Simulated assay, not measured.
Amino acid sequence: MTFKLGPRAISAGYRLATFDKTGSTNAEAMARARDGERGPMWFVTSEQTAGRGRRHRPWVAPRGNLASSILEVIDVSPAVAATLGFAAGLALEAALQRVSVEASLRSAGSDHMKYQLKWPNDVLAGGQKLAGILLEAEAVAGNRLAVVVGIGTNVVAAPEGTPTPATSLAALGVQVGAEELFAELSDAWAEFRGIWDDGRGFGEIRRLWLERAAGLGQPVGVQAGGTAVEGTFDTIDEQGCLIVRKADGTRVPVSAGDVYFGSAASAGAA
């Protein structure tokens, strides 16, 4: 089986570049943008050797996992472009739900797998990290912004020793190939990218994201650099910042950081 776009993605004008193996799909996408590619275009492989996640952490996808990046060149500010990550989370959650249902039907199973979105850019299953999302952006000719959204999903294997315990679809009993997941993801991306609408639809994206948010209303700790904020995960605001409500009722917006459910002091040391 080979990687193919879903029918909705094809009709929306998306194109596809596939690799048997590559260092980083994000790097491939951004290099093409620097050379004049304007997308929208997917870059996909089932074996990535030099990928990276947030804060330059390595994100290696052994053969059978899904490493995918979408290039969109758009007329928005970097702050607005950053909210596209929430649409990416929704797209991946929808694709995972669809392939899980199909896999369950094939195996005559009845379990309904639930996936949650962890601020700012992870997908969890059973409290474990299943996928991560990384946005990168660069200015290109015409005062436009080349935005690359990298989406890495543990299909057959998960890394060990990560700050947040990781899992894979195979470990969860969801027997699906990277190619099948990608076809669903490409269609779901076209759907939620349309809702996002260059940031104009972020209100709806925000509402849908909060419905799937991990830890909402629960104790949370956020570490950014040498500082920590602890309280209750209250919501995300209109810019996508995490709002932490402290014990005294103060609501603190957080624009970046590592989120731990429970105490940042104890979890952050893990």
Rank of each mutant, 00 (worst) to 15 (best):
E138S: 00
E138I: 00
E138D: 02
A141R: 07
N143L: 05
N143H: 15
N143R: 07
L145W: 03
L145P: 03
A146Y: 04
A146H: 05
V147G: 06
V148M: 01
V149C: 10
V149T: 10
V149S: 14
G150M: 02
G150L: 02
G152D: 15
G152K: 11
G152T: 14
V156E: 13
A157F: 12
P159K: 07
E160H: 10
T162N: 10
T162P: 10
P163H: 09
P165T: 12
A166P: 02
A166L: 04
T167K: 03
S168L: 00
A170K: 10
L172I: 01
G173D: 11
G173A: 05
G173E: 08
G173F: 07
V174W: 07
V176G: 00
E180Q: 14
F182K: 06
A183C: 12
A183G: 11
E184P: 03
L185D: 01
L185T: 01
S186Y: 08
S186N: 09
D187C: 13
R193T: 04
G194D: 08
I195H: 09
R200G: 14
F202R: 08
E204C: 07
I205E: 09
R207K: 09
L208D: 08
E211R: 13
A213V: 14
A214G: 06
A214K: 08
G215E: 06
L216N: 05
G217E: 12
Q218V: 01
Q218S: 08
Q218C: 04
P219T: 00
G221Y: 06
V222R: 00
V222S: 00
Q223K: 14
A224R: 10
G226N: 04
G226V: 03
T227H: 15
T227E: 13
A228M: 15
V229D: 11
T232G: 02
F233A: 09
T235D: 14
I236W: 01
Q239P: 08
Q239L: 14
C241V: 07
I243S: 00
V244T: 03
V244L: 03
R245C: 04
A247H: 06
D248P: 06
G249C: 05
R251W: 06
V252F: 02
V252D: 01
P253S: 14
P253Y: 07
P253Q: 05
V254S: 01
S255V: 09
G257V: 03
D258M: 13
D258T: 15
V259D: 12
Y260M: 11
F261R: 02
F261P: 02
G262P: 09
S263T: 11
A264F: 13
S266H: 12
S266G: 08
